[in-house]
């Protein structure tokens, strides 16, 4: 049995769903962020796998993966600044207690 694209797809799906569970179930904002990073990584695995298993001259998958990593880095820096600010103001990073925008 050889390594096929479906292996990587199922692994990426499992990683994405673990990240989804973390986003939905965790209460700490930092933990939610880490779960989002897991989901972004699952997407990257999918992109690179499709890139590797198709035509050799197509670099699109890897290039988009680089952009995803870039945006993830920007996102984590900004989000952690927001969390820090929130903690200084409210004294908590529990996403259940942050309901200022509740109508």
């Amino acid at each position: 049995m050889i390594l096929e694209l479906a292996h990587f797809q199922i692994l990426a799906a499992a990683l994405f769903c673990l990240g989804l569970y973390g986003v939905l179930a965790r209460r700490s904002a930092v933990m939610v962020l880490m779960a989002v990073e897991l989901m972004l990584n699952a997407v990257n695995i999918n992109l690179v796998a499709f890139s590797a298993f198709r035509d050799i001259s197509i670099v699109t998958g890897q290039v988009i993966a680089i952009f995803v990593i870039t945006v993830a880095a920007a996102e984590i820096g900004l989000a952690l600044a927001v969390i820090m600010r929130l903690y200084r103001r409210r004294g908590t990073v529990n996403v259940d207690e942050i309901d200022w925008m509740k109508g």
Partner: peptide, 30 residues
């Protein structure tokens, strides 16, 4: 957990169902 498992089932089923279209390719480097 239920939502995540359901999504995993959906994605894995799609990957297995579609695998015939892609698995003729060997992986190759760039």
């Amino acid at each position: 957990a239920v939502i995540s498992l359901a999504l995993f089932g959906l994605l894995a089923g799609a990957a297995i169902g579609d695998s015939g279209d892609y698995n003729t390719y060997q992986r190759s480097g760039i």
